[in-house]
Amino acid sequence: MNAPAQEGHLVPCSVYVWVWAALLCLTAVTVSAKYADLQHLAIFAALLIATVKAGLVVLYFMHVRFEKPIFAVMILVLLATYGIYIGLTFVDYANR
């Protein structure tokens, strides 16, 4: 019954502060990227930056980096499934 409650080690608070700072910086980048004339690439640039931010949140704030690998595996299953949903829907709409 006395399994370790925090699954190992504590993450230093400074890590969270740095991640937060990085997230704010990326928000600034994505806003300013809007004013750069990226044309069609703009939406992809925005999505790329958002995905980097999401990765930071998942890995650090949500602790996936420090959890057992099964969590990462499950998340990959989710992303693969969602990728299928998006992909096969767009095979239709990109070819109408």
Partner: peptide, 22 residues
């Protein structure tokens, strides 16, 4: 906390997709 971060994560996508595509 996990729930709260997810709420944050969804907004991370909502923000550029709605506000930044003009």
């Amino acid at each position: 906390g996990l729930y709260w971060h997810l709420v944050d994560l969804i907004w991370i996508y909502l923000f550029p997709l709605f506000y930044l595509i003009s």
